[in-house]
Amino acid sequence: MGIELDVKSFDDALKILSKNYKIFAPVRLKGKGAFSDTDLVTYGEISSYKDIELNEKSRYSPKEVIYPITQTLFYFTEDEYKEPEIDDKGIIVFLRPCDANSYLKLDNIFLKNGPYEDNYYKRLRDKVKFFIIECTKGFSTCFCVSTGSNKFLDYDVFVRFDNDKITCDVKNDEFSYAFSGKEVEFIPEFIEKNEIEVKLPDIDKISQNLEYVFNHELWDEYTKRCIACGRCTVSCPTCSCFSMQDIFYKDNPKCGERRRVWASCMVDGFTDVAGGHSYRQKYGERMRFKVMHKIYDYKKRFGTTMCVGCGRCDDVCPEYISFIKIVSKVTDAVDRGESK
């Protein structure tokens, strides 16, 4: 069963929820696009239905809600380390199934990789309530069905936005108090077919032909085409790498902070070791490293494909490099390589 609301009662629900939760959704920032007189669609806090941008894919993913670009780990006063406080409120995120699945991918890195849980990630992640935006058509570069990220069933609330009619499946009883409206028959739907279908490579075949795939000439093209700007990785909802930075305040050098900031395997400096050596200097090698992480080695480690098929990397590449195309090339190469 679902609850049908009009805009006003939906806004009332948001108002009630906002007492205990910060509410995030895709929003349109007027004039904030890189090109003049264009907008930026990204994740931001909302307070009403009209704030939510439903017609365009957000350039940046909702990962920054739980994993901010810059996150202070410690404040230093003299030689003391102090952990920053965080907001008491919970976090509600309106997001599509692909992006909801991306949170599970980040969980693998931050909570399950290695012997320790990342406490900074966990303390935000534990607050998250999933409000799924029903997505049955997707956008022109989406391929979530191919990556198996088109469904997300473990939601708190599922929302269908049909113009001004909003239907919600409130699965988590904790939220039923906020939604009042007509009870209606409601079966949440998920996209079953994207415009784009991508065949992912068989990871066992890659394992058996690792050197063949790694040294394949298909990567060479990207040494020439890629500019190593990192846009694909910052827009990716599953990229999780970071660097640590220590700073002291200019006006008070005795105090400072240690923070972590997103890093990109595509950008210079990612592998620099003390003394000047670095690895993967060719951009094609970086491309290979990134692509293989998304479709091969992460899956080998965690049993699930990292890429959620949101297509943002294709959308944002200034050099028109298509990740989707690369994946197809890898699959082709692997299939052909095996038959050799």
């Binding site: 890195i109 990789n113 290695g114 660097s243 640590m244 972590r260 620099d272 690895y279 091969y296 080998k300």
Partner: peptide
């Protein structure tokens, strides 16, 4: 192996070589 590492505990990604985390 010597690799760049920011976390040392399998999160930051700098030391990863394919599916292997040098720090782990």
């Amino acid at each position: 192996f010597e690799r760049k590492m920011s976390c040392g505990i399998g999160k930051c990604g700098h030391c990863k070589i394919n599916e292997t985390y040098v720090c782990l």
